[in-house]
Structures are given as structure tokens and as C-alpha cells.
């Protein structure tokens, strides 16, 4: 067995960090897309109008039932067969649609956890349903769902490694490229794992801070 050569990881650190940057950018944009879809679909899920609630429920069930890898292939190769589909756009769509389904369920449960009296109190002062949602219900719900939401977005960073199979040059694909050039799998995968961990751990600490900052005693 050959000696370990950690120098390789240092030599190629810039290549790996390029991948980190792309993974970060991809995760950040997908998080925003997923959050937007999740809030919209989550609100639709609690609608009393079945024409709104049922399509939202179908979206959640269908997307949660498909592996992310298949969803990415479906968008990149399937839909890409009909329209021009750059890998990055396919990756953002896939991750956004995927995490949107999970965020929708988190948002729905968060809203439902706020007592009915809060909505009634807001409505009794003349607020519309949407005003009451925006100023009274959602701010409270968000404080409550911050921990599960953080878990969801940590998953998203990790899941984003799958986009390497549709030739998005993220951290995982860069790691594979470096290994092809150096044959140093143990060292490079170790460093890659540490880089992913540093991303997710930073996010998890940041959310912890937010949680304490916005704590509501009730």
C-alpha cells in the first residue's frame, strides 16, 4: 500500500474550492426557489378551496415519491429532449422543485400549529386573510419551523452532490476530476467530505443563532 499524500489535496485545493463555490451558489439559489415554492404550495395546501388544495397535495405527494436522481434525469434528459436545458438550470429546477415539496409540508404544519384565535384576532381588527397571514401567522410560524427548515436546507446542500451526474461542475464532480488526474481517492474524498461538512455545519450554527435571536416566549 502506498503512502498517503495529503500534499495532493493542497495542490488541487483551488480546483476543489471552485466546486465549493458552485455548490454554494447552486444550493443558495435552489433554497430560494424551494422556499418560494414551499410557501406558495404550503398556503395552497391549507386552502378550503379544493381546486387549490388538491393540486398542491398532488404536487407534494408526487415529488416526494420520486428519487431526486430520477427527477434530475427527467428534467435534464427528458424535458431537455424538447427544450434547450443548460445543466445549471436543470439542477436548480430539480433541487428547487424537490425541496419545495418538503418545505411545503413544513410550512403547512407550522401554520396549523398557530392557534385559530390568532387568525380570529387579526381578522377582528379588519385585516384581510392575507394580511393576517403575512403580519400575524407567518412570522410566528416561521420561528417555529426554523429548525426543521434548517434540516431541510442542510439536506439540500448534501443532495446537491447528485447534480454532478448531469455534468454540473460542483464540488463532487471536481473531486472526481481531481481523482482522475491524481488517483488519490482517499485523500480527495476525505477533503471533499470535510468541505461539505464545513458548509452544513456553518449553516446549522447560523440557524441556531437565528433561533435564539427570534425566540418567542409564549
Amino acid at each position: 500500500m502506498s503512502e498517503l499524500d495529503w500534499g495532493v489535496a493542497i495542490d488541487y485545493l483551488d480546483v476543489l474550492l471552485y466546486g465549493v463555490l458552485l455548490t454554494l451558489r447552486l444550493s443558495a439559489i435552489s433554497t430560494v426557489v424551494g422556499l418560494a415554492i414551499g410557501i406558495a404550495v404550503g398556503l395552497c395546501r391549507i386552502s378550503k378551496n379544493p381546486l387549490i388544495a388538491i393540486p398542491a397535495a398532488v404536487y407534494v405527494e408526487v415529488v416526494r415519491g420520486i428519487p431526486l436522481l430520477v427527477l434530475l434525469f427527467y428534467i435534464y434528459f427528458g424535458i431537455g429532449y424538447f427544450v434547450n436545458m443548460p445543466p445549471f438550470i436543470a439542477a436548480v429546477s430539480g433541487l428547487g422543485i424537490f425541496s419545495g415539496a418538503f418545505v411545503a409540508e413544513i410550512v403547512r404544519s407550522g401554520i396549523e400549529s398557530i392557534s385559530r384565535g390568532q387568525m380570529e384576532a387579526a381578522r377582528s381588527t379588519g385585516m384581510t386573510y392575507l394580511q393576517a397571514m403575512r403580519y400575524v401567522i407567518l412570522p410566528q410560524a416561521f420561528r417555529r419551523i426554523l429548525p426543521p427548515l434548517a434540516g431541510q436546507f442542510i439536506s439540500l446542500i448534501k443532495d446537491s452532490s447528485l447534480v454532478s451526474v448531469i455534468s454540473v461542475v460542483d464540488l463532487t464532480l471536481q473531486a472526481r476530476n481531481v481523482i482522475i488526474a491524481t488517483f488519490r481517492s482517499f485523500e480527495i474524498w476525505t477533503v471533499t467530505a470535510l468541505l461539505y461538512f464545513s458548509l452544513t455545519f456553518t449553516l446549522s450554527r447560523a440557524v441556531r443563532y437565528l433561533e435564539r435571536r427570534f425566540k418567542v416566549v409564549d
Partner: peptide
């Protein structure tokens, strides 16, 4: 109804203040 409710103050048994 939203316009009309502006004229009607309502006080609840359990206060229902906004905790945040």
C-alpha cells in the same frame, strides 16, 4: 366584512395578543 370589522372591536377570553 373587513371594512365593517374596523367599526367593531372584539376582546377575547384568552386575549389572543400577538406573542411575537
Amino acid at each position: 366584512i373587513n371594512l365593517l370589522r374596523q367599526k367593531i372591536g372584539f376582546v377575547f377570553q384568552h386575549f389572543e395578543l400577538y406573542p411575537h
